[in-house]
Amino acid sequence: MTDKFISIEGIAKRYPAAGGATTTVFENLWLSMPRGEFACVIGHSGCGKTTVLNVLAGLDAPSEGAVIVDGQAISGTSLDRAVIFQSHALLPWRTVLGNVAYAVSSKWRRWDRARVKAHAQTFIDLVGLTGSEHKRPSELSGGMKQRVGIARALSITPKIMLMDEPFSALDALTRGTLQDEVRRICLETGQTAFMITHDVDEAIYLADKIFLMTNGPGAVLAEVVENPLPKDRGRTDLHRHPLYYALRNHIIDFLVTRSRTFTTEKPDHDPRNVPVVQIGKPGLTIAASDEQQQTRTPGTSPGLTA
C-alpha cells in the first residue's frame, strides 16, 4: 500500500445541469493502486465509473483534482494507458491485423511495415485469433471482436490496462473464456489493470482489490475489498473456496442496500481514508492510507453461505 503506481487524488466531476445549477457526479474521490495489481470497480449504473475510467485514461478531464501515474501527473491520453472499450471500438474499415497494426504503428512510428506486422501478429496469436487476421470486424463474433480489442490494447505494451465493462455485451460462455485469457495474460505479464464491471463473480475471479462505489449523484468510494481468494484460483471452482460466499455476500449486500444508504449512515466517511475490508479476518479492517489505524469490523463473517 506504500507503492502508489496509480493515484487518483481528490478528483471531482461536475456537469452543468438545467437552470444554471451543476450536478456533481462525484467529488473528492481518492483511490490508489500499486503496480501489477488488478482492480475492479463495482457500482450501480450512473454512479460515475466510466467517468473515473475516462479521467484515468485522459479522455476526460476532471473538474478538480489530479491523477498521478508512475509519479507523474497525467495530462491527456497516453500510450502508457491502453483502453479496452465496452463497445470494442474497432475500426470497421480495417482488418483484424489492420486494427492491431494501427496501434503498433502509432506507438512505434519508425518501424517498417514488416516489423509492425510481425509485432501485431504476436498479439493476435496471443488472444487466439490466428487465422482470422484478414477478416473485417463485421465478419467476427462479439467475443472475437473483443479479443481484437484486447490484442490492440496489449500490443502497445502499456503500463496500465483500463477496461470499461469489456465483457458485458458477451454471452456467458464467451465471457468466461475471455476472463480466463485476460487473467492469464495479466498474471504472465504482471500487467496493472483497472476494470469496471457489473458482474460480481467476474470481479471476484479477476480482481486483487474491489472498489465499491455508492450510487450517484454525489457518489463516493465506500470501501476497498481485498480479495482473500488464492492467486491460483480457477474460474469454475471459485465457489468451493471457504471465503467465496462471505466475499460475494458482502459485495451483494453493498449493491443491494448499502450503496444507497452508505452516505447517510456514514456521515464521517473520510474519502481520503477509505476503509479496507479484509474478508475472513474479523476485526482487521484497516484504513487505506498508511498513517491510519484500524477503524471498523467487516460487515460479513467468514464462511456464511447464501
Partner: peptide, 24 residues
Amino acid sequence: EWINVARTLEVGTFRRAFTVILPA
C-alpha cells in the same frame, strides 16, 4: 469511440484526419 481510439493511441491531428475521420 473511433476518435477516442485515435486519442488513446496519441495519434496526431493530421494522421487522425486521414486514418480515422476520412475513412469513417
